[in-house]
Each structure stands twice: as C-alpha cells, then as structure tokens.
Amino acid sequence: MNLKILTITAMTCVLSMSCENEQYINKSGNLVPKTVEEDPNLPSVVVNGTVLHAEAHGNSVNPMVVFLHGGPGSDYRNGLNAKQLAESGYYVVFYDQRGTGLSKRHPKESYSIQLYLDDLAAVIQYYRTSANQKVFLFGHSWGAMLTAAYINAYPDRIDGAIFAEAGGFNKQLLDEYGETSRRLKLLAETTSDVFYYDQFLTGREKDHEILDYKMALASSFSYAKGNEEGVETASPFWRNGAVVLRAFVDISENDGFDFTTNLNQYATQTLFLYGENNKSYGLKFAQKEAAFFSNTEIVQIDDTGHEMIHSKWNLVYPVVVDYLNKLN
C-alpha cells in the first residue's frame, strides 16, 4: 500500500509542479521568435499585401543585388555573408519570403509560384531608386529555383543571375536531386530525430508556431554526419515556414512546375556555383541546369557543400564579385 501512496504522491507532484509555470507551445516568442507582425522593431517592408522581414545594405543608388534564400520555408540568415557585396559597390537586399523566416504567415491555400514572383517584383520595386538601376538576383537552393522562375517569366527584367545549387529548375530535376540528397536511412539516428517527436508535438495547419518549431528540430537532418549534401555544420536561421513548405510541396506534387521554358531567351551570362562536397549536385547537375541558358559560367567552390555561402564565403565572394563586375 505504501508503494501505491508513494506512486500517487509522486504523480501528483509531477502534475502540480508542471502547473506552476504554464507556458504555451503555440505562443510566439516561447519556442520560435516573433514575426514582423508581432514585433514592430524588426526591419520590414509592406508590399503586395503582406509584410516581409527585410533589410538592405550599401548605397541605394548602386546596382542592386537581391538575395533569395533557400527552402521553401527557410530564411536569409544563412546568407548574410553576402552583405559584404555592399563593400564592393552593390546595394544588397535581403528579405524573408512570404510565410517564412520572420515574415508574415498566411493560410496554406494562398501560396502560389506566381505570388512569390509578384512578391519579388514588389521588393525590387520597393528598393529600386531609379529605372536604370541594374538588378541582379543571387539565389541559393530554392532561392536559385525562384531566380530561374523569375527570369523565365520576365526574361528582360534582370541584369544577371547567380545560381548557388538550385534544387531543380523543373519537377523532374527536383525529384532527381531530392532522391539523392534527402534519402532516409531507416535505421539511422537521423531518421528517429526527424520522426520520433511527431508522437507528442502536433499542430493544426494554422498553428504556425508549433509547425515552424517542429521544422526547426528537423533541420538537424541536413548537417548530420555523412550527409549527402556535404553540409559541414549547422547553419543559422531564425524561423522556418512549415506551412509554406507544405504548400509548395503540394503544388509541386499536384501541378508540377517547369521554370525552363523561356530560359533560352535570356542572353546575359549567368553564374552557377556548386560545392565540391555535395555528392547530390556536383558538376554534372550544374551542367544540366546551366544547359537551359545560352551563356553560362560554372564554378566549383572547393572543400564545402550546399551551405557554401555560410561556410565558405571567403571562396564564394571573389567569384561573385568578379561576375557582377563583368556585367556592371
């Protein structure tokens, strides 16, 4: 009987202790940072019916370089090294895409590729100081796919583009890249790390705080030991956008996509970067993507993988500056 009393007492203590400091998992600021909607101190722009977390560096009359982060559903924190381009005479613009990073969240049904292109056009318009100011796009991973989508839709608007390991300019290439880069090993610790918490962390489709937090926990998969993309270590981010990721996965699966149909009309030279250690990408995949353009340069960044902008910026920077200066 003593054991029973002890058990009841212990459980009561656990439950009562847990009641002392009630904390809500779905409250911004607890497990994930607040967005621009909740924190007015964050730098932001109001464009195209949304509020985007954004910042710009350098002289606003200089040629503009818009950095497009990866994902969908990541943010620009791991690309902030590109701020250094401001020292080389460029006006560098960063923004968290709609529904991710510290930008405003929207319902899943509202997202589309065209909406993302409209947001990009609106950001360029917001920061552009003159009609003859040159505009370059610098895209990383999904951001490089978005760069291709923008050029494909508007081949005459952009003065140059840098593609750092785009995940696939069409559905076929995306699947090809995904098959090798995101392969799960059933018995591996990384697999448990991604799935196991699903049993006690769940959120509805509008519970952005919970879903974004869960996605953050899954990020450890990307830099696990032996990962195919050659990612050396954790790269920083503020907050993922889980709902926008699901929206674009659904769009890709249900509708497919092809950002390549007009790329051959783009005569300006483009720059393709790939990390030496990314086993899923490499020169062959870079060549496949570059082949959609008529004038390209492909450069290997040594001793790094998919997160080259964060991990080996000292090697990326001179290549990017040389390319931009040639077109400037």
Binding site: M17, S18, C19, E20, N21, E22, Q23, Y24, I25, G29, N30, L31, V32, P33, D198, Q199, F200, L201, T202, G203, I210, A216, S219, A234, S235, P236, F237, W238, R239
Partner: peptide, 18 residues
C-alpha cells in the same frame, strides 16, 4: 544558430495528440 531567447521549461496545456 536558431533562437537565443528560446524559453526552456515545462509546457502545458498539452503539446499534442494523435
């Protein structure tokens, strides 16, 4: 690398269910 001000501790009400 993610969120310096994250709040550790006990979270309730419930964090989920299946």
């Amino acid at each position: 690398n993610v969120y310096a001000e994250v709040t550790d501790g006990w979270y309730q009400p419930s964090t989920g269910g299946n």
